[in-house]
Design a protein around this nucleic acid. Structure first.
Length: 956
DNA sequence: GAGTTTGAAACT
DNA sequence: CAGTTTCAAACTC
């Protein structure tokens, strides 16, 4: 692909790179617009302010070139302005362009705009934005696509947009209004640049008007555009987008001036819906929830296609790349949809795409249809959007970040093509179940219903899962497993992971009791959960994904397995009055935040893997071989009568042994009794005894290690913690960790990877991001370590090793930053698990972290989430290079979350340890902290990898 | 499928 | 933080 650089001259990014300035183009541009210099600062600020937005944008997968270009672009919006020269700022110009540009730009731009607005908001303390920084990150993500897609041109445009946004307080401030104006505005920006680059003079006129419009635009307008057809829109969008793109490109090349015009005319009409759709999405993100990313991804695909065919492709390489990233996912999704849901049901694309698709990471959201309600069946589990409030990322993360279990599931489903119809979601309209909740929800409802569609989970795939499918999905499952806690998706490789199908099926096993009751639930669940459940359950082993049967909790309490797992209730659920549905996204998020505020670890994966331990040792017990996984329950059980031999026991249910953290009486857990755990490993462990929550956990790593763990957690909603992507870090022991996780996994699946990948971090936790420890690469581990020590302290007691709940991070980070390192030695961690006398695990080894979507961190904008693929390298770069700065810069995410680091003990950073990370141990450590700060917060955000890379590259 | 048991989550 | 209540899953019949 072309390097952005090549395009740069074209766009006139002169500001960014010296070379560009030197270039004739630059000189030309400069001549055109004297003003340029002025804007530059603004633009740069915007980005900087954003913190890591740029990073976010970049997709992990992006090739370095593209990334670099991206960065440049972002940084140098000037060109456009310069072109416009006479005009005030790049803003107007871009705006006008938007008008003209029409849809294409609009689409791309929409994402961008939102982002910019958010950025503006973020930058402005005053603004009343309720949204968390995270939202911004999401936006950025969306934007990223846009930017990437257009190399030089785009970059310029993007830059313009940002600058504009920045300049314009009003828009940025009230993001609520954007609708049309934004669309146009945004869209225009990109095109403008293109056109402007060529024929700057033409553009300027309308800019003012456009700009005005944009400022005043109403979100409503956007929503309007998002009609039911939105679902279909996606498909159309792609096509339109492609066509437009191609046209634009052609025009641009030959007749730049014409391009503007055409776009304005044709593009607008044709794509209005799309753009609006995108816009709406972006808005949502902005608000904190939805991802525009998906949309953008779809667009990107289209663009890519276009590019490939078109001569211009070379120039737009960046775009192409992005498209590729999203492409797979989308395609899959689309394919699935069509195949399964002619109607255009959406998928919960958010989830990572099948592991098979590496690229898929993004795929997540791409597909989400605009349709308000549901996406058809796609995924059983929808993950919550993270952004709102603290929640980490939403969908945007297409790639990785945001994956929740649901997403994972969905993706798997999608990949398999198995997806079945979803229940209510498809219906489009469904009655809300609960009156009671309704009140609070109601307000959101309208919007949610519309928007929520993105999230809606469809389900069912699981059931269908045949064995064969399962295999295919296995990867998905793995991913999901990872994601459970974090978002990380595992790549296919793991057989261990539960099959998604199975997981889902599990629910069946669980209970049927209420099936018929739920009023609302029934509606939602029209599909007969029972059948499915039975099938799946039967076929599957004990584990299966359970579905809830809540009657009184509205599925908004941790009593609800679905809710606890960070997934939306789906068909299989027999819940009554369920509010844990995409339609009630806002409510769900709010409640979730509340819960997390009380207990940051609430959504953290319950099962953590002990770092040191081998993934699993197999012991024969009882009839079958029982694998005693190294995993342990985060908080431990409290069984008194079941002797930990029944599923009443969470440890047993998760198929993990009881640990010292358990308070059970008469433990006879076949997977490992209380006293047994840790004996082998560490002597230190013994001392710990039952620490309260968390202490024990710390030692453990997130799931990932053993197959058993994966299955259990992954499959079990409980285990899933999409929202809180936790990472785990395994630690220092790189080798050890690796052993667990096949490196290949990380890298291979882009899907998982990038976004989650790493680390994702769990995450990505999500999902939940990510969590698979396995997923984490060494680098990630390193990062994690760094982070971990920060967090560990706080978390240790919390026990939520994995979670990243925002709260934790915040405090944790704070402490780390300000605070001294700690007392504990990291070094010990690796091999020994240090439970320090305190009984807490040693931080180092445990590294865990979690990024909960919610975490304030997200606010940061996404920091960088490492992504699977290049992620590793990037991390190094980041760690060493920029990351720290960014982290520093970024405001601390403090969160609302309370931190309770129970222990508040601090672990000393692994001075000695510093992993290999960059080679520089000490430096690495430092870096790590910084990195962590950002990373953690932003965790959900998304495309860590890219950012990291970029950062590293840039510095380089 | 109804009812009971169990233990986590939530509440006080 | 401990005790109690609420809740839903697990289990039994």
């Amino acid at each position: 692909m072309d390097s952005p650089e090549s395009t740069q001259p074209y766009t006139g990014d002169a500001t960014e790179t010296v070379p560009v300035q030197d270039s004739p183009v630059f000189s030309y541009i400069s001549n055109l617009s004297p003003i340029q210099p002025v804007k530059e600062p603004a633009v740069s600020q915007g980005f900087t302010g954003l913190n890591s937005p740029p990073i976010v944008f970049t997709s992990p997968r992006l090739n370095p070139h593209s990334q670099s270009s991206f960065l440049k672009r972002s940084q140098f919006p000037q060109l456009p302005s310069a072109k416009l020269a006479g005009q005030d700022g790049g803003r107007r110009i871009s705006i006008t362009a938007a008008d003209r540009s029409g849809k294409l730009d609009g689409q791309l731009g929409s994402g961008l705009n939102t982002c910019t607005e958010k950025e503006l908001d973020s930058s402005r303390p005053v603004d009343g934005q309720t949204e968390s920084p995270i939202g911004c990150s999401d936006q950025f993500l969306a934007d990223v696509v846009y930017m990437d897609s257009f190399d030089s041109n785009v970059s310029a445009d993007s830059s313009l947009n940002y600058s504009d946004d920045i300049d314009q307080p009003p828009v940025g401030v009230t993001y609520s209004k954007e609708s049309e104006g934004k669309l146009e505005y945004k869209h225009g920006a990109r095109r403008n640049e293109e056109s402007t680059a060529i024929a700057p003079s033409a553009i300027t006129k309308q800019t003012d008007e456009v700009h005005k419009r944009g400022a005043s635009v109403d979100r409503r307008a956007i929503e309007r555009h998002m009609t039911p057809k939105d679902g279909d829109i996606r498909g159309d969008q792609c096509a339109k987008f492609k066509s437009n793109l191609s046209e634009n490109l052609a025009l641009t090349n030959n007749y730049p001036e014409n391009l503007m015009t055409e776009n304005a005319e044709a593009g607008q009409t044709g794509h209005v819906d799309d753009s609006s759709y995108l816009l709406s999405k972006s808005i949502k993100f902005y608000e904190g929830n939805e991802n525009s990313v998906e949309t953008t991804g779809a667009l990107a695909e289209a663009v890519q296609t276009e590019l490939q065919s078109s001569p211009m492709a070379a120039e737009h390489r960046g775009l192409f790349v992005r498209c590729l990233q999203f492409e797979d996912a989308q395609q899959k999704v689309i394919t699935n949809r069509h195949a399964q849901n002619p109607s255009g049901i959406e998928n919960s694309s958010r989830l990572l795409t099948s592991s098979a698709d590496r690229e898929g990471s993004q795929s997540l959201s791409l597909e989400t249809p605009p349709t308000p309600i549901s996406r058809a069946g796609m995924t059983q589990h929808m993950v919550y959007p993270r952004n709102r409030g603290n929640y980490s990322i939403k969908v945007p993360m297409p790639l990785g970040i945001g994956l929740h279990l649901n997403s994972i599931v969905s993706t798997m489903q999608v990949g398999a093509g198995e997806t079945k119809n979803v229940k209510s979601s498809e219906k489009g309209n469904f009655s809300i179940g609960d009156e009671e909740l309704v009140t609070p929800v109601s307000s959101h409802l309208s919007e949610n219903s519309r928007n929520s569609s993105f999230l809606s989970a469809s389900e069912s795939v699981l059931e269908s899962a045949d064995d064969g499918r399962r295999d295919d999905h296995a990867s998905m499952a793995a991913i999901s497993a990872n994601s459970l806690s974090t978002y990380n998706v595992k790549p296919l490789g793991n057989p261990v992971l539960c099959n998604p199908i199975e997981d889902q099926s599990t629910p069946v096993n669980k209970r049927k009791s209420n099936t018929g009751n739920a009023d609302d639930a029934e509606e939602f669940n029209k599909s007969s959960p029972k059948r499915k459940r039975k099938k799946t359950s039967e076929s599957n082993d004990d584990y299966s994904c359970k579905r809830c049967n809540c009657k009184k909790s509205k599925c908004l309490k941790l009593y609800c397995d679905c809710f606890a797992a960070g997934i939306y209730c789906a068909e299989p659920c027999s819940c009554q009055g369920c509010f844990n549905r995409p339609e009630y996204e806002d409510t769900v998020l709010e409640i979730r935040q509340q819960i997390e505020s009380r207990n940051p670890l609430a959504f953290a994966p319950k099962i953590v893997q002990h770092f040191n331990e081998p993934p699993s040792s197999i012991c024969v017990e009882e009839e079958t071989q029982i694998s005693k996984s190294s995993g342990r329950h985060k908080r431990g059980c409290n069984c008194k009568k079941s002797m930990c031999l029944k599923k009443y026991c969470e440890c047993y249910q998760a198929k993990v042994g009881c640990s010292d953290g358990c308070r059970c009486e008469g433990c006879k857990n076949v997977y490992g009794q209380k006293g047994e755990y840790g004996l082998n490993k560490d002597v230190s462990m013994q001392g710990t005894d039952e620490t309260t929550d968390g202490s024990f956990v710390e030692k453990l790593e997130m799931v990932g290690s053993g197959n058993v763990l994966y299955h259990t957690e992954l499959c079990n909603p409980h285990n899933l913690t999409p929202l809180t992507p936790s990472f785990q870090y395994s630690d220092q022991g790189k080798g050890a960790s690796k052993a667990w996780l096949p490196p290949g996994k990380y890298f291979q699946s882009p899907e998982s990877g990038p976004t989650f990948g790493v680390p994702c971090i769990r995450f990505p936790r999500s999902p939940r991001n990510s969590d698979n420890p396995d997923m984490i690469t060494e680098t990630s581990k390193e990062i994690l370590d760094l982070v971990s020590f920060d967090h560990e302290l706080d978390y240790q007691k919390a026990g939520a090793v994995n979670d990243f709940s925002s709260g934790y991070h915040g405090p944790g980070n704070m402490e780390l930053l300000s605070g001294p390192p700690n007392e504990r030695e990291w070094e010990n961690n690796l091999e020994v698990q240090p439970f320090s006398g305190s009984g807490h695990f040693s931080s180092a080894s445990s590294l865990r972290w979690r990024g909960s979507p919610i975490t304030p961190m997200a606010q940061f904008s996404g920091t960088k989430l490492p992504q699977a693929v290049d992620f590793y390298d990037d991390l190094h770069n980041i760690m060493e290079d920029e990351t720290p700065e960014i982290l520093k810069d970024t405001p601390n995410p403090l969160n609302t979350v309370k931190v309770s680091s129970p222990n508040k003990k601090r672990v000393s950073p692994p001075h000695g340890h510093s992993r290999e990370l960059g080679s520089s141990s000490s430096a690495g450590v430092r870096m790590a902290r910084k990195f962590i700060l950002q990373a953690v917060p932003s965790f959900p955000p998304l495309t860590p990898c890219v950012e990291s890379k970029n950062g590293g590259q840039e510095k380089a």
